[in-house]
């Protein structure tokens, strides 16, 4: 596996506190970078604004997932109770829509069920996980992102990326241990 060929992923800079990371994010945003990210052990309130990240579209996806659930439940009950297998029970109308209140519980449950799974799979689709590996894990220091260290990573794919300029930029905004992350090809 030891090959000399390496691919540059980007620059990784460490920050000690949420406060520092927040302001660093504002600087990176204002410098016009586009392919970069912050890494933190927990979500930081307001960092989306500091980074200029737009609101997630997930709610809309979930709304339609939920609507699909309601429709499924309604059709399931309509078809089985009215067409395939009408039963005269509970002194309720057998055919027609006037047993609707009795269908609400299942309609509600399937709405929630479909919405929840849409949330799960929609989330995974939006964030592109799971994946087996990621170049950023090549950095040994990066493992501390899940403990107490905050990182900013500017990727080499960014049009404004430059080997020298980005490094000094990250140092200027307070980044410590600025590291060039490269992984094996």
């Amino acid at each position: 596996m030891s090959t000399t060929l390496k691919r540059v992923h980007g620059y990784l800079a460490e920050f000690e506190s949420v406060h520092d990371l927040y302001h660093a994010a504002e600087h990176v945003r204002d410098a016009g970078y586009s392919r970069w990210d912050c890494h933190s052990p927990f979500p930081i309130h307001g960092l989306d604004v500091a980074m200029g990240v737009k609101r997630s579209k997930l709610p809309w996806i979930v709304f339609f997932g939920g609507a699909a659930g309601t429709t499924t439940a309604f059709l399931l009950q309509w078809i089985t109770q009215n067409i395939i297998y009408p039963t005269v029970v509970q002194a309720k109308p057998t055919v027609g829509v006037w047993s609707l209140p009795a269908w609400f519980p299942v309609m509600f449950e399937l709405t929630v069920l479909f919405s929840a799974f849409t949330t799960l799979f929609g989330l995974l689709a939006l964030i592109g996980l799971p994946r087996l590996n990621h170049p950023i894990f090549a950095s040994k220091r990066f493992a501390k992102f899940s403990d107490d260290t905050f990182f900013v990573c500017i990727e080499a794919r960014d049009p404004k990326f430059s080997q020298e300029g980005t490094k000094s930029f990250l140092e200027k905004i307070g980044g410590k241990n600025v590291e060039l992350v490269e992984d094996d090809i």
Binding site: Q90, A91, K92, P101, A102, F104
Partner: peptide
């Protein structure tokens, strides 16, 4: 409101 209506409607 639904629970109240529903239970009275259902038990009849």
């Amino acid at each position: 409101a639904f629970s109240q209506y529903f239970l009275i409607w259902y038990a009849n």
